[in-house]
Design a binder for these strands. Sequence first.
DNA 1: AATGAATGAGACTTCATTCAT
DNA 2: AATGAATGAAGTCTCATTCAT
Lengths: 212, 212, 212, 212
Amino acid sequence: MQRQDTPTTDNHATIPAAERHTATSARRARRSDPNRKQRIIDACLDVIAERGVAGTSHRIVAEAADVPLGSMTYHFDGFDDLIFQTFSHYARQAAERFRTRMEQARTRDDACEAIAETIADDLLGTHRDMVINLELYAVAARKPQFRDIMTEWTETVLTSMASFFDPQTAKLLDDVIEGITIHRAMAVPHPSVERTREDARDAIARILTRAV
Amino acid sequence: MQRQDTPTTDNHATIPAAERHTATSARRARRSDPNRKQRIIDACLDVIAERGVAGTSHRIVAEAADVPLGSMTYHFDGFDDLIFQTFSHYARQAAERFRTRMEQARTRDDACEAIAETIADDLLGTHRDMVINLELYAVAARKPQFRDIMTEWTETVLTSMASFFDPQTAKLLDDVIEGITIHRAMAVPHPSVERTREDARDAIARILTRAV
Amino acid sequence: MQRQDTPTTDNHATIPAAERHTATSARRARRSDPNRKQRIIDACLDVIAERGVAGTSHRIVAEAADVPLGSMTYHFDGFDDLIFQTFSHYARQAAERFRTRMEQARTRDDACEAIAETIADDLLGTHRDMVINLELYAVAARKPQFRDIMTEWTETVLTSMASFFDPQTAKLLDDVIEGITIHRAMAVPHPSVERTREDARDAIARILTRAV
Amino acid sequence: MQRQDTPTTDNHATIPAAERHTATSARRARRSDPNRKQRIIDACLDVIAERGVAGTSHRIVAEAADVPLGSMTYHFDGFDDLIFQTFSHYARQAAERFRTRMEQARTRDDACEAIAETIADDLLGTHRDMVINLELYAVAARKPQFRDIMTEWTETVLTSMASFFDPQTAKLLDDVIEGITIHRAMAVPHPSVERTREDARDAIARILTRAV
DNA sequence: AATGAATGAGACTTCATTCAT
DNA sequence: AATGAATGAAGTCTCATTCAT
């Protein structure tokens, strides 16, 4: 309780007490829904891809995941936590995909191809991934916690490339991956996957030519 | 309104109660205010930098610009228009800055240095620019309209480089600029401006070595 | 935006942005409603009397005052401010009533009768006043700001009695007023107004007998 | 939940997210917990003292008592029952304390001193008791059921005084006790215990002087 | 006997926008 | 031309309570 001109931290009051709702409406039974939390995260990812973080809300995600609104703050410690866990999950998955691709590479050429494929297929292949990436960047630029997600991701990428490229080259390649991703994302109309793959191959080749 | 914000005390950002509306009359009294619209745009840019598009609202911008709330929908055709014009202004300004830098370059080495400076000083020099850039990217990824802003910007950049580099090299350089910008933005802690400039120089050099 | 285990003050996020409700439903026109704020306060007093502060909410008060929910936080700086202003108004009014009664008294006996009437009619006459009084006490016990309301009230009461009683006697009388009020409020069933007035007269007489 | 609360940082009072439910298993492990119900009541009293009935909820009490949320509705028949039993316990205890004090009195003077001590030490000695008292009054004013608690308490008080004072005097004394208690509770800043005891002695003396 | 999981209702607040002035 | 007043929708979050285990 606070007077009108005395700003305090306590400005989100809540429910009264004592006399609360006594109505006992009929309830749908939907208990015991395993991995509901994961379903919410997946749905949240979809929503972010479609409407951006700015357009994401508990209600919309709950609807997308087909869970009651109350589930949101039950499973997540507030909206911010939802966003954090969602991006965290996404980044981990993306990093894993990249590592898998690199692990399957035998030669340096294989590795280059894997990178090109990552750019063209994983990062830009779908509008979805593209948007999520950029939304994550935007948030991370302002929130240190989200930068940690990025750090982890970057480390996995660089580590995965370590077998084929020296650290400096790997970093440069990583920069280029990023740059191409963004620029193609911004292009209107978006270039085709094939075209993007070509461009990626060329860029990588140019960088490596000198390093050889 | 504050969603993905760094925690602030947020004392006066909130809407005043009814009385306060009239109580603040002394503060304003700003009849005949030329370029009020521009002041709103500048304030909006500040707000976006600090709270992201998700945390931006008419009220907060109005407060930051010290204009009445009614001004917002009077000068802008709704919220989206405000954001669009704001980003549009920003991008044009950034492109102009880059062109000026390049125009002052005489040799190819000058040009490289200008690029490095752009990365280190203009795009990453301030947290502000970094955040605004990424916010713009995020929006642009989802809204074609905003992609036009990016297109214009990119064209100015490539055109400015045309005197010193062949198209393909310019594009690659542009990609690297982007990649470095992002990766440094994500790094924790942010590397120093000097360090960033060094890295940028190296990356550019590597790319050009082979092209020469 | 905050990670799950990092308690920050920033835990009441709000609206997204950019893509918000564009629906323009038909609106009732109810502009220009003078002293709407006072009507809300009156309604709030009714609600408190009926359900206690614990049972009071923006929604319920808005409904009682027949104003849209949005009006509540428009006219008041949050729930706490509403409660504060409501009690403040009530206390001022009650103090005024008491002063008027005392001002009309000519003799000491008149004053005694005025006090008895205050107890029986003003403070206990209606269930409404009784409840509001006690709710105010309860809040004031925990919130210093509300204690200020009480202080002002008490001062008015003591000042009003100054013409007829020495300070110490006035204070004792005030204490007795309070005590009778409470005890009768707690009695089950509530004694009649007449009975209460009798009791008050007796108590006052007893206190004054010795002082004479 | 916090409505009319003094501003607190409120870190751990909030509900944990889903995972945290299981994460805290180490903390509890309290099988076979005798007088758990009493522990809940004690905790509830603390919560009421700190946040008022309006700020009390099942969750907060459960947290304060370190029992699982489900315990609340298991041991109590809903929220109102919890509040009722809590106040009931408190009043019985307070009445008992008063009776003990009076039983130890031998002379009428002893009795007067016991009353003064009750006011100064028991009712006002701690902020806690003061708040709880007034919260109880407020609820009792609106709910007959709670008035029964008060009736029982008052009867014990009057009975305890019967050995030393005639009924009418006892009643008046009781009124004064009440009045002083409230007025001191409202004073800002609260007078010291010693000062309060003095005042109480004086008031009692004045009342009795005439009666003698 | 006891409790973790879950939920629908409702809490406060802020929002973009409209409209009379 | 400009704006203060006002509002319905939607925001996040907490609530008491139920129920399967």
